[in-house]
Design a protein around this nucleic acid. Structure first.
Lengths: 344, 344
DNA sequence: TTGAAAGCGCTAACAG
DNA sequence: CTGTTAGCGCTTTCAA
């Protein structure tokens, strides 16, 4: 009735538990004859080793936790996909933890993951609390964090930095070259660090081209379509309308584009829009969106690979922890949502 | 150095392991005094019980597996979100398993989940193999499957049926009432059961209105935007152009709409489009999409709740397994992508 | 070439 | 009111 154990197999095959264990794990020589008997018994009983029991002794669960802000955000979907892919290839399972941008909720996930003894954790949510890190470092749990400044005290912490600068600078160069002079930005929620980073890079780039940041309208969006839509309304009611808008992400850019169309503004003839993310849709909407691209799928894969590296080391040579920092560059994908400003 | 165990706590508090266990789990009376000593020791050692060890004895992991076809599909994102939400609320963690429509890959996931002793499994991928089910039933693992005809032999299997019929029928009624006579359908991959179901419901509904299914063009798409785009090209090259197209899902519908615009066709003036899913985008594109809606978030939550029900019962009263079947209805959301056919 | 036995961290009789 | 003890299903010395 109940699932069979290694003891059942041993009895059935007429050998000891340790022999069974060894043939399963190929961990010492066993005579071909007895090997076959064991395999037979396994087959007959439909035996599968319990990873719970294994984990109890080995201290490894072949499981990792993945914290993200929001599954429904296409950016994270891609990242998840990348993580999943290399995890599966290496025999790991992943606990998906959707923090919903809630730090407390995230902390509860972390604790639950620790209780479940995950081998490592991927911290990819766009906001994270230092308490998460201390919780993990205290327990020596290998982690990799995405896009977050961290005093890399830990010997178990690798980081991936997203270089938004390269791509955003290129975008500004591109717009300036087209002749734009009046800019605006629709940010993400400004209490999120990443929102401020994107904004500041944009403003700095403009400043290098002699444009006073104080004259650049910044409206706060929410990384969602409706945020972009509302932001555009606000921008259009200003005295000086911008001719080019940089959106904090593609969803926001879509919102802007559609809201513009609703108001009879043509993109890019009347208004140039640049997004950020390069979600799948970006290449398919009309007009196809000019955007700052991040290799999302690769980011997921890279993160998981870096984690695996940490795991190998923490197992094999606990002394020489090789925590890494990797930078992932953004780049500008020029499509059809940008053009010369009107009246030129 | 290493994480402290219940033994450490017991020693520190000067009591036995069982006492510690009992105060942690509130499982028998312990004098307030000793309770406090135990809590103190726990605090001092920063002790957290190992769920691995617990699971070994309790046979429960408070973990479930969630199989879906594709994280990047917005439909699944929402479902995942719903599942996650109620899972967290009940102290469960979820293993995300992205099958990529690959039956073998799915089977490997299932086996891995069984090895890891998940308490239950949510089978929500759009195609599944019978072998998955037998694997699960053999091990008496409670499962709920989404939208799949299953000879409900198992006492551990609940099902959710998606009633596409209500919504699709309403869509056809709507189009007929508008005056359409020439219809087409862009399906999903026809080797997927759900694709055939959607198509057949559509064709049957038309037939009830006196329209010969043989005269309805059906082009195979892929549930993605580009599939819709290519399909439209094919449909337009036919002698008899349709005036109304039913797309197997919203992404496909978007593809059709955008491809139509690229070719100078106006939606809905020249061509009416109905989608299926009601993804977030559907309400925000121009024109806003008329579509057959499924309550995706609720589906995820419902599934997880049904699974929890199964778990409770399999724990508390193994005799009276209450496997359920629940039907989730679709409905038509009328927006702006449908109108009277041209030349009327 | 194989077995016996200890132990991983916890729970749950069974005693007292 | 609390402690002792025997497992849960596996891996891994240590012996033979």
């Amino acid at each position: 009735m109940n699932r069979s154990t290694i003891g059942d197999v041993a009895k059935r095959a007429g050998v000891s538990k340790s022999t069974v264990s060894h043939v399963i794990n190929n961990t010492r020589f066993v005579e071909e004859n007895t090997r076959q008997k064991v395999f037979h018994a396994i087959r007959e009983l439909d035996y599968r080793p319990s990873s719970v029991a294994r984990s109890l002794v080995s201290k490894r669960t072949h499981t990792v936790g993945l914290l993200i802000s929001e599954v429904r955000n296409p950016f994270y979907s891609e990242v998840i996909y990348g993580v999943e892919d290399v995890a599966l290839a290496h025999g790991y399972n992943v606990f998906l933890c959707n923090t919903s941008y809630d730090l407390d909720r995230g902390l509860r996930f972390i604790q639950s993951l620790i209780d479940k003894q995950v081998d490592g954790v991927l911290l990819m949510s766009s906001n994270l609390s230092p308490s998460w890190l201390t919780e993990l470092e205290q327990r020596h749990i290998p982690s990799v964090v995405l896009d977050w400044e961290v005093k890399t005290t830990g010997e178990f912490l690798s980081t991936i930095q997203l270089d938004f600068e390269t791509g955003i600078n290129a975008a500004v160069d591109h717009l300036i070259k087209l002749g734009h002079k009046r800019f605006a930005h629709v940010s993400g929620q400004l209490h999120l660090r990443t929102s401020r980073v994107r904004r500041d890079i944009f403003l700095n780039a403009l400043q290098r081209h002699g444009i006073d940041p104080a004259e650049v309208a910044v409206v706060e969006g929410n990384y969602l379509i409706d945020g972009g839509q509302k932001a555009l309304a606000e921008l259009l009611s200003a005295a000086q309308r911008p001719t080019a808008i940089f959106a904090a992400n593609d969803l926001t850019a879509l919102g802007i584009i559609w809201a513009a169309r609703d108001r009879g503004l043509r993109v890019p003839e009347d208004l140039s829009i640049v997004g950020l993310d390069n979600i799948e849709l970006a290449a398919q909407i009309v007009p196809r969106l000019t955007t700052v691209a991040l290799p999302r799928h690769e980011i997921g894969g890279l993160a998981m690979n870096m984690l695996l590296e940490l795991l190998d080391i923490s197992k094999e040579a606990p002394s020489q922890s090789k925590t890494r920092t990797q930078v992932v560059k953004s780049s500008l994908v020029i499509r059809q949502s940008t053009a010369q400003p009107p009246n030129l």
